[in-house]
């Protein structure tokens, strides 16, 4: 990610929209077709990635479908349908809004929301650690593959994997000490700064905000 590559929806706006949309949908007991209005707009913005996004949605649905089935079994059709619809609307909203974002995008978005410095610092350092530890994870998986070792359900595999987890923990803690040193040496004063001014909002942001509000408060096309 670059700050220069403009995502269709500004991440900090996306965070607010996801929160408003999610919180409102979660409280609904009746569903309307119009609630998906914003999703169509987002889907159009992300049209090149729709296949990947839908694959993710299907994968995330396993648990939801499982719960819905147990409800259906007990003749709670309305509840099952309601749950399925609510879940998928909210999930799709998040997946569409944040597809292509990474941990750094989110940390920067948190900074732009003008939250307390301590929480933004934590997000910055967590995103950094995620990046570095994930790198270790990839290296380990490659090492296993090169050595032709496929983990199985046996003690040796479990010990190998646990040894790796142990290594990850040690490296993570070492990174935390190094980070503490960097804070001291570079004169950390409780805040991570940014040079860029407040990001100007795009027309997509405005349209998405408007459509979100319409989706939530203009009920048309009763479903259940």
């Amino acid at each position: 990610m670059d700050q220069t590559s403009h995502p269709p929806i500004t991440p900090c706006v996306a965070l607010l929209l996801a929160l408003v949309y999610g919180c409102t949908i979660a409280l609904q007991t009746h569903m309307y077709v119009s609630m998906s209005l914003i999703l169509f707009f987002l889907a159009w913005l992300k049209r090149r990635f729709l296949l990947i996004i839908f694959k993710r949605l299907v994968m995330l649905n396993t648990l939801i479908v499982f719960i819905a089935l147990t409800l259906y079994w007990q003749h709670q059709e309305h509840l099952a349908g309601l749950m399925l619809l609510r879940s998928n609307l909210m999930l799709l909203c998040i997946l569409l809004l944040f597809h292509g974002c990474n941990e750094f995008t989110i940390a920067i978005a948190m900074q732009r929301l003008a939250l307390p410095h301590k929480i933004t610092t934590l997000f910055f350092f967590t995103s950094k650690s995620i990046f570095l530890i994930r790198h270790e994870l990839v290296l380990f998986k490659n090492t296993l593959r090169i050595r032709g070792f496929t983990p199985k359900t046996d003690l040796l595999s479990y010990k190998t994997l646990a040894g790796f987890i142990g290594t990850l923990v040690i490296k993570a803690l070492e990174r935390s000490v190094a980070l503490q040193k960097a804070m001291l040496l570079r004169g950390f004063q409780g805040e991570i700064y940014t040079l860029s001014r407040r990001q100007s909002l795009s027309s997509n942001d405005a349209i998405a905000t408007l459509l979100t509000l319409i989706s939530l408060f203009w009920h048309q096309g009763y479903l259940l």
Binding site: K181, Y193, T194
Partner: peptide
Amino acid sequence: DSDNQFLAPIVED
């Protein structure tokens, strides 16, 4: 290790 040096994620920051 340069990775340990950085505090902000964007170069200019």
